[in-house]
Amino acid sequence: MAILEVRNLNKRFGEFAAVRDVNLTLERGEALAIIGASGSGKTTLLRCLNFLETPDTGEIIVKGETIFDAASELRRNDSWIRKKRLHFGLVFQSFHLFPQYTALRNVTIAPELLAKGEQGFRANKAKILADIERNATEILDSVGLSDRLGHYPPELSGGQQQRVAIARALALNPDILCFDEPTSALDPELTGEVLKVIKGLRERQTTMIIVTHEMQFAREVADTILFMDEGCVVEQGPPEDVFGNPKEERTKRFLERYSQGYIESPYKLYKGTQDVLFV
């Protein structure tokens, strides 16, 4: 059974149709890369999945359970949404770390707040908090930040901040990890370290949806490429097909612009390096 099924999703902002009739399925352990020009609806689609936007029509089904159905108004209260959105993790383009907390605290805060709402928290408080902190430390270690636990976000480079943000999302154990252009706000020399982390997650069978402008990276890391244009899914398939032999005219034109170098991909800057962050 597919871990995620999106049916017939539409989202308008006033007159502007941002997402049009999107259908997609995602299998457990699959990495889906969504590519397309700016304004093609990639980010809006991701935000719909994370309940940051409410779709106008459509259904979102996770693990066989309908977590969103535009046709039914039922169950759409805050606590329902809060519970169901945890199926997804979201890494933002501009990180959105909490500036008043250290890297470690950025990762532990959400699990702690969730644990406090659970029954039996008081009885095992010390143990639960210790577990959360140990888990957070391990995750930060796995993204190569074991020596930055006590640093505040402004003391970290953009790449390090984004890795903290990835760790923060991972700490809640989401079923599906979403990346919204995770390297677009970074200097070219810093994108490599973030992409390597995502690649490491891929090797550990994390189910992911990656909105990206890094074509080369998408090609290497994704099982499926989804090309969007003007809110519609234009073409979908394995990277070899979409990149190597695009069927649609729009896909061809889009990819051509990239290969002609109008849009520079910084990904190649790290291609030569050998060190791997995930061990």
């Binding site: 994370n50 940051l52 809060r82 959105r85 979201l90 933002f92 501009s94 909490f98 923060r168």
Partner: peptide
């Protein structure tokens, strides 16, 4: 306070 801060809190399952 940037809207992204709230959104980050929301996707992490925090209440308002």
């Amino acid at each position: 306070v940037p809207k992204g801060q709230q959104e980050a809190g929301l996707v992490l399952g925090m209440t308002k």
